[in-house]
Amino acid sequence: MNQLKQYFLDKNSTSPFVDEVLEFIDLGTIPERMKGKNILTLEMKGQDGKWHACFIIPQTYDKNHNLTNVLMTLSDIDDFKKRELEAKEKLKEAAIEAKQANLAKTNFLRRISHDIRTPLNGIVGMINLSERYSNDTDKLYECKEKVLTSLDYLLSLINDILDTNKVESGTLVLENKPFNLIDIINKIIAIVETNCEQHNLQFYGGKDMSKIIHRNFVGSGEYLNRLLMNIASNAIKYNREGGSVTLYCTELSSDDTHALYEFVCKDTGLGMSEEFQKHAFEPFTCEGKPTTTGYNGTGLGLSIVKDIVEMMHGTIQMESKENVGTTFKILLPLQIDPNPQIIKPIQTKPLNLTNKKRLFQRKSHTPK
């Protein structure tokens, strides 16, 4: 018993187990504590910092069934206890993450219900307004543009939701088809430039800043377009009036089968807080800052971008500072198309219009 005290306690001990140890080895209370039990157990740390388990086991009783002798044993359970504590910590973290995920989904449902109703109400309003101004061409054109903008947002919203569901269920499959990188970049630039003009933003980059050597690839051109559009849309959405968006790509290296491309999207917008950056790529997360479009978004865009980039065996990096802007850099290895289809211009023969011209002249001089 004295050895046990010396091992676990000393006169200067600050161990949190001091009171528990003293209570556990109190011989005067053992018979009472043993009633209805076959063993007493205490887990504690010793002076060496290791975990131990102390057991008190009844040995003999007198004729009145009073406990007279006990066996006290000590076991080293340091490895087991550490694994147990690690497991408990992981369970605790998992519970916290599950709670945060449920809260994020609740906030997501609240945001998405608002974001669906807003453009739908706008579309209905514009259609009703167009009926009142059926003879005003300028007003009808304005209504049409607003309807198309709302429809584009709704389509993006639905695509994000569907893709998130596919990722979570493991059913998202990237197609493997030939595509032309320049065609994709040109289409994206045309859309981004137009959106920048609508929101009084400057656009830089495009073909002038891009370095494209190989242009024909095999892979998912559709999802490459999607992830670049998501990044560019965020650059516009979370920008400020008079700000800028820069978008370009560079071929860094290549071999016989693949070319490594870096896609860069930079904006001079609102930026992200340091705390939000820790969760920016998690689904359903949204910082809630004001946007140029008036739509807060679902918080799924960056999550989907990261999933697609990883499925394409690439990486994504983000640098952001509040009130300064955000820069995304995406590295993707693209599979070079070994047999690209070259679309040749249609060869046409000159038409001989001599006889037709004479016939036309004769008809034109025929009196009515």
Rank of each mutant, 00 (worst) to 15 (best):
F8Q: 01
I57W: 09
K187P: 03
H313M: 11
I161L: 04
I212H: 00
N352I: 07
N107C: 00
G46H: 06
D208K: 15
G294R: 04
H365D: 10
V21A: 04
Y248E: 04
L172N: 03
K63N: 14
L332D: 08
V309L: 10
E282H: 05
G325I: 08
M272Q: 08
A280C: 10
P119N: 00
D208T: 13
D136Q: 07
L151D: 06
F24Q: 02
A95H: 06
D10H: 08
K139M: 14
A190R: 11
T106Q: 08
S273W: 04
D152S: 14
I304V: 14
D208P: 00
T106Y: 10
V324W: 03
S156I: 00
K11P: 01
T285L: 00
D208W: 09
E84C: 03
A95V: 01
Q100C: 03
I236W: 08
F328E: 05
P283S: 04
L302V: 08
E20R: 10
S254R: 10
A190D: 12
K363N: 13
E97S: 01
S75W: 10
D255S: 02
I236C: 06
P31C: 06
S233V: 00
C249V: 15
K278Y: 01
A94I: 04
I308S: 05
P16Q: 08
L85P: 01
V218N: 07
L359M: 15
V147S: 07
A232L: 01
Q47R: 10
T348E: 13
L172W: 05
N352E: 06
S220I: 02
E20D: 15
W51L: 00
T292V: 08
K357V: 09
K306S: 12
M311T: 01
N69K: 13
I25R: 00
C196K: 04
N159W: 05
I188R: 03
T164H: 06
K81I: 01
T268F: 03
I39G: 01
T149F: 09
T326S: 09
W51F: 07
H258I: 02
L42W: 01
V18F: 10
N355V: 12
L227H: 03
C265S: 14
H52A: 03
I123K: 02
N64G: 05
N225F: 12
Q341K: 15
G122R: 06
I191A: 13
L9F: 07
L71E: 13
I346G: 02
C265F: 03
G221C: 07
P350K: 11
H199S: 08
Y248Q: 02
L71Y: 12
S244F: 12
N352R: 09
D48F: 11
F8V: 00
R358Q: 15
I236E: 05
S156E: 14
E274K: 14
D160T: 02
R362C: 04
L201K: 03
L157R: 00
K45P: 00
D138H: 10
K356W: 11
F55L: 13
N165S: 15
M312F: 06
P283I: 02
E310F: 06
T164C: 08
N200T: 14
